[in-house]
Structure formats: structure tokens, C-alpha cells
Amino acid sequence: MRRVRYYEYGGPEVLTAEDVDQPVPQAGQVLLRAEAIGVNFVDTRFRSGPGSGSIFHRPLPGRPTGDVVGTVTRVGPGVEPQLVGRRVAALAEDAYADYVVAEALWLAAVPDHLDAGDASMLAMSAPVALRILRAAQLNPGDTVLIHAAAGGIGHLAVQFAKFLGAGTVIGTARSSSKLDFVRAVGADVAIDYAQPDWPDQVRAAAPGGVDIVLDAVGGTILQSSLDLLAPFGRAVVYGAATGELEQIPVVKLFALRSVTGFNLTAWRHASPDQARHEMDEIADLFAAGRLRTTVHAGLPLTQAATAHELIETRSHTGRILLLPDARST
């Protein structure tokens, strides 16, 4: 089978396709024949190496993670044999491959007829998008500011915010085409956060402040966002794409503001039953057509470098997929 790894840090060109034996699932694991692999921003930072920021350090060889959609072909010890033949989705390591090992406990069952783009969101992106809003304790009528709203998680967070009853949803992105996309998925206001006056534009749209901020950008974006919170406003930080781990001045919280961090693995460990329930809830919403995923590009597995280039140039909207069965052109 084919697998893509990297053996040195650097640009997308370090991603290396190689022929290897199929992996063997261990206890609690399954082997998936991959149909599609959702590519995530964070792996471009891991590939770039520690220079991207201390939070992005991973040892070599690099085993990219991804949101894998596939069919169970084999199970490890302790896993129900009935899973063989089922179409599922999973967040997995060493994901850029024809066959991928995944943990059986967090497989997401894929509803019948769901396409690969939607299915790729079931295991990680959609659960994060829903839970960060619930962690923010969204109330009906709240004003929500969502950064990077054109991305894989962001464009789902916009939809979830509306579904959960938000009053005004403000989405930020870069470039006019991305702003159009953010509006198309449901945002009431779209703002280019590359513009220096973006906080003033948010204030114009929400004169009383915003109730919720969802941020995975970090750096100065997070610092400015805290100043935009209304009294009792809540910020949820679930990443730091800039690699900058900001110190949050306590004085900013004295204005009746709060900041919560979120990590999917920690959430699953702390509340596994609720995390599983939400995965099922999300699958039902996709099956009913109440959520939708935009796939920007579907590329052959051997074009993983191109997928990373698209992400790093921030030229995509929605999801980028690697398709093992697609032919390179």
C-alpha cells in the first residue's frame, strides 16, 4: 500500500510517498480501507517543525493526522467483529495512506448516502465546532464572533451557531471570496481580519459587544477579541494557528469576561458519554441535510504536498480531501 510521511521538517515538498505493508490493528483498533482523508491545518505546522511554535513540535518521522472516511476491513483484539464492512469516519495518525489504523472507541458511523466531504467531518471537525459553542454556553439571541470562519471547523461553527439560536453571527476570514463564502454558510456579517480596523468593524456590527468569541488563531487576534466581549462575554480558545501562546492579562477579565480552553481529546476523556452522544447527534443533522460541508478540492493521495500548499496559502474554503483511489494527473 501507499503511505505519505515526512522525514525532515520543511515545506510541503518534504512529504514523501512510499510503498509499505499494511498496518496491523492492535487491541482496541480497527483497520480502515481509506476512501477519503480530510487534511487539517495543524499538520502543516507540525510538518514545518518546531520553528512554527513550541506547541507544534512532533518527533520525526512525521505521521500526518487526518479525518479518515473508510470501510473497516479488519479488527484488533477486543473489537466487535461485526464492525468489518462498515463505513465509518475516524481521526487517525498516519492518516495519509491507503489503509489506516484507528481507535475503535471513537469511530463515527457514517449515515447511508452521506458523501465523503460530510462524512469527513463526523469524527473531529464537527464535534469541535459544536462543543466549543456549548462550552461557551450559547444562549438564544447571543452575538457570536467566529474567527477563521471559512475553514473546516469555522464554516461548521457558523452553521451550528445559527442552529443553536444565535442572534447575530459575525465571521472573519481573509479575501473577498472567503467573505462571500462565510456569508453563504450563514454568517450575518463577514469581516476581513487582515484589515487593521477589523475590531472597529466588529464594534459597528455589535455596538454592545459580542457575547461569544471562538478563536483558533491566537496572537493579536485573540488579544483584540477579548476587548470586544460584552459584560459576561465568553471566549473559547481551541487552537493557536499563529503559534503564539499569548499571556492573557487578568485585568482584561475584570470587565466580567471569561476565557475557556478546549481540546477534543481532553473533552472525550472528561465526558465520554456526552462526547459520544454529540457525535451521534451530529451524524443525524448531516443525514437530515441540516449541516453541509463545502469541499474545496479532492486530490489524489500522492498530491498531499499540493493539499498542504493550498492550506498554507489560505486559498481554500471549507474542506480539502485526499482521495486514495483518485489518479494523479
Rank of each mutant, 00 (worst) to 15 (best):
A123R: 07
A123C: 14
A123H: 11
M124E: 12
M124H: 13
M124D: 14
M124F: 11
S125P: 07
S125L: 12
S125C: 14
S125I: 04
A126Y: 07
A126V: 12
A126G: 07
A126N: 02
A126E: 05
P127D: 10
P127F: 09
P127M: 04
P127L: 09
P127G: 12
V128N: 07
V128S: 04
V128L: 11
V128H: 04
A129R: 01
A129F: 02
A129S: 11
A129Y: 03
A129K: 02
L130G: 00
L130H: 06
L130Q: 02
L130C: 01
R131P: 00
R131Y: 08
R131G: 01
I132A: 06
I132G: 00
I132V: 15
I132W: 03
L133N: 03
L133Q: 01
L133Y: 04
R134D: 06
R134W: 08
A135M: 14
A135E: 15
A135Q: 15
A136N: 07
A136M: 06
Q137D: 15
Q137P: 10
L138T: 00
L138K: 00
L138V: 05
L138D: 00
L138F: 05
L138H: 00
N139W: 08
N139P: 04
N139C: 13
P140Y: 03
P140H: 05
P140M: 10
G141A: 08
G141R: 14
G141M: 13
G141Y: 05
G141K: 10
G141T: 03
D142Q: 13
D142W: 05
D142V: 09
T143E: 03
T143S: 12
T143D: 12
T143C: 08
V144A: 13
V144L: 10
L145H: 09
L145N: 00
L145P: 02
L145M: 10
I146D: 07
I146W: 08
I146S: 08
I146C: 14
I146N: 10
I146G: 05
H147C: 14
H147R: 13
A148V: 13
A149R: 08
A149D: 12
A149Y: 07
A150E: 15
A150M: 13
A150W: 10
A150P: 11
G151W: 10
G152E: 06
I153Y: 06
I153G: 03
G154R: 10
G154K: 03
H155A: 12
H155Q: 14
H155I: 08
L156C: 09
A157L: 01
A157C: 10
A157I: 04
A157Y: 04
V158H: 02
Q159A: 05
Q159C: 07
Q159S: 08
Q159M: 04
F160P: 00
F160T: 02
F160E: 01
F160N: 00
A161I: 02
A161M: 06
K162S: 03
K162L: 07
K162C: 03
K162P: 06
K162D: 01
F163D: 06
F163R: 10
L164G: 04
L164F: 13
L164M: 09
L164K: 01
G165K: 00
G165E: 02
G165H: 08
G165V: 00
A166G: 12
A166L: 07
A166Q: 06
A166C: 09
A166Y: 04
G167C: 07
G167Q: 10
G167P: 03
